[in-house]
């Protein structure tokens, strides 16, 4: 180990609050993380944002480590972000795309994981269409598992990058009012954000058609709105969610145009929010379905490109902290 990586290792640990050891071997969800832990990720990510803006973006903190991206569900954006994050920390990154269509899912999942585990990776970054799949893997493998989105459960790095985007623009999370809008029922992004924003002291609202609001969501500490104009009133942040096309056409909502009419984000609708309200979207956007192009492209108000940029930094911070925990940094 050379001097440079030694000093960066200390830098990473310096962002853990005094007396606190990063306790997680895996990052399976936001639920259960403390505000101190979340701040540690965000503080470290701030440093990586700067690193990522330099011409030489690469450090050696995770040199020699192996990261396997195991994506059972297509996702160019998240996979690329993790890939860059790993590479910028000097790790070897391998991408595995696994099709689930032809084989029995369960067998593929555990068998594939055990096969990969035998190659001694340090991290498995897992995306899977079923809630709880990363947890199942985490119980079986001996490396760190990072949940890159599981079913309708959690997408922790998305919530962390959302938090970083907000914090860098607003300077804080505490006391802000955030409206998460759209298909809450099927959204892992919404769940992770509800946990994170709640822990950090923000007021969270969920706004959407009643058929896309999950049962008992109010028990997660949010206020529920089915009327978008009321839901957006005086909010600081409008977080739009993607509406999957297959959920249109009569199953959950009657039609695309009806959805846009009542739940699409337009400039008029945004007018009821605070004048400096910011707009977020985890991407990819359905322009004209959940969000109007005029709003999405307003660089003064839209955080959408920040989210993409900071996603890499947040994932670097997560990898780095998990590596610290494993005791062989």
């Amino acid at each position: 180990m050379n001097a440079a990586s030694n000093s960066t290792a200390q830098t990473a640990e310096a962002f853990l609050p005094p007396g606190l050891v990063w306790p997680q071997r895996h990052l399976l969800g936001i639920e259960g993380l403390t505000a101190a832990e979340i701040n540690a990720v965000l503080d470290l990510a701030d440093i990586y944002v700067e690193q990522n803006r330099r011409p030489d973006k690469r450090s050696t903190e995770l040199r020699g480590r192996t990261i396997m991206n195991l994506f059972f569900e297509d996702s160019t954006r998240t996979r690329t972000s993790f890939e860059l994050a790993g590479k910028r920390l000097g790790a070897d990154v391998l991408n595995m795309s696994v099709s689930t269509s032809s084989v029995k899912k369960g067998e593929t999942l555990l068998d594939t994981a055990m096969t990969l585990n035998a190659m001694n990776p340090d991290f498995l970054v897992v995306r899977h269409a079923e809630s709880g799949a990363p947890k199942l893997l985490a119980d079986k493998v001996n490396c760190s598992v990072i949940n890159a989105g599981d079913g309708t459960h959690e997408h922790p790095t998305q919530a962390l990058l959302d938090a970083l985007s907000i914090r860098r623009r607003k300077g804080r999370l505490e006391g802000l009012t955030v409206a998460i809008c759209g298909d809450i029922l099927h959204s892992r992004v919404a769940r992770s954000n509800i946990h994170l924003l709640g822990v950090m002291g923000a007021q969270v609202r969920v706004v959407g058609p009643p058929t896309l609001i999950p049962s008992a969501i109010d028990r997660m500490g949010v206020d529920v709105f089915t009327d978008m104009d009321r839901g957006l009133k005086d909010v600081d942040i409008v977080m739009m969610l993607r509406l999957q096309n297959e959920r249109m056409a009569g199953k959950f909502v009657p039609s695309l145009r009806e959805y846009f009419r009542f739940h699409g984000l337009t400039a008029e609708r945004l007018a009821v929010a605070k004048p400096d309200a910011l707009i977020m979207h985890p991407g990819p956007m359905n322009r004209g379905v959940e969000i109007d192009s005029e709003v999405a492209d307003d660089i003064g108000r839209s955080l959408i490109l920040d989210q993409v940029e900071f996603g890499v930094a947040v994932r670097m911070a997560c990898l780095r902290l998990l590596a610290t925990t494993r005791g062989n940094a």
């Binding site: 639920e31 709880g132 049962s215 028990r219």
Partner: peptide
Amino acid sequence: NEGEIATRLGLSGIP
């Protein structure tokens, strides 16, 4: 069972 736990776990509920 449909309810808070199912919602937290991201599992479809049976009312």
